[in-house]
Amino acid sequence: MKNSSIFNFEAVPLSQLVRHVTRWHLAVFAVCVATVTVASVMKSRWLEYYEPAQEMHYQSLAMQAEDPRLFFLGSSHFMVGVDPRMFPFEVVNLNHQGLDYRLMNLILQKNLARWPDVDAVIIELDPYPLFADTVATFGNKVTLGRLGLDADEYTKSVKSWCSHKLSGLTVFQRPSLSPRTMLERMTPTAVVPGFVSSDLVMQQTGEERAKFHMDLLKNFNTFGENHAALNEMILTVHQRNIPCYLVVTPHAEGYWDALSQDVRERYRDVKQDLIAGGKVQVWDLDQDPALQIQTHDFRDGDHLNKSGAQKLTASIIRRVEDSGVCPEVRTARKP
C-alpha cells in the first residue's frame, strides 16, 4: 500500500495544517455545496418554462368550450404537422413531444367523453411512440400534469423512474437564465392551441434524428405495452361507433434506414397487422408523392416546418373529405 498514490498526496497531516487554511478549504467546500443546492432548487422551482402551445393541459382547456368534429391525437409530429386553423370546421389536436401510446391511450380515455360528437378520431402512427417511454424520458413532473393527467392515473414503473433519474434522460425544456431564453419568454407570441409552427429548415437530417431516437429507445422495453395501448385506443373509438384513422407523417430521407432493423421490422409488422385487420384505415403520407414534400419542408429529419405542415394538413383535409367522414361540414362552418 505504500506505493498507492492515494497516500502520495502532499503529506500534510491534519494536525499540522494551519488553522485558517483548514477553515478556508471548509469554507470553499461548504459554499460550493450551498451554491449548487440553491441554484439547482432555483432552476427546478422557478425557472422551469413550458411553452403554452406545447402544453396539452392548456390545449385541452383551450378546446373545452368548443365542439370539434375531428379529434387528432399524436406526438410532436402532429404538434408541428397538423394545423387546426386550416380546417374549415372545428378540430382538436392534442399532442405532446415524445408521447408514447400508453399515455396517448390515457389521454384518449379521458378526453373522448368530453367530445361525444366527434366525427372521427385521427391517431398518429409512428415507430417512436410505439417504442418510447415518455415518463422515463421527460420525468414525471414535466409530463403528467401537462398532459392533463393526474398522477394517480399513471402508475410509473420503478424502471421508468430509475431511467429518468439515473440516466439524465431529460432531453428538453432545460431552463436557463441566458438573455436569449429570457427575451424569448418576455416576447409575447400568438399561441395556437395544439400547433407549433417553425421556419427552421432541416436542423438535423433524417439519419441524425433516427440515431437520436435509437439512442433514447435503447433504454426502454415498452413495445408490448405501447402496442397493446394502440389496439385499445382503436377499440375504444370503435366502441363509440366513431371512425378511427391512423396517419403516418412524412420523414426525411435517411430516417428509416438509420433505425435499427428490429425497430423497423416490428413497426412494419404492426402497421401491416392494422391494415390487414381492416378495422382501421392507415393513411400513409410518409412517401406520398401527391404531398410533394421536399427537403425545405422539414424542420428536421422527422418534423415538418410551416410549409410542410401546410401541405400535410391540406392533404389530411382532402382525405377527410374524400372519406365522407364529415359530410355536413363540407362547406365551411368556420372560415
Binding site: 459554499v31 451554491t35 449548487v36 432552476k43 432545460r174 436557463s176
Partner: peptide, 18 residues
C-alpha cells in the same frame, strides 16, 4: 475568490445553454 467560485458555479447551473 469565494465570490467568483459562487458566481461561476451559479452561472453554470442557471445560465448553461439549453
Amino acid at each position: 475568490r469565494l465570490t467568483m467560485y459562487v458566481i461561476t458555479l451559479a452561472a453554470l447551473i442557471l445560465c448553461g445553454s439549453p
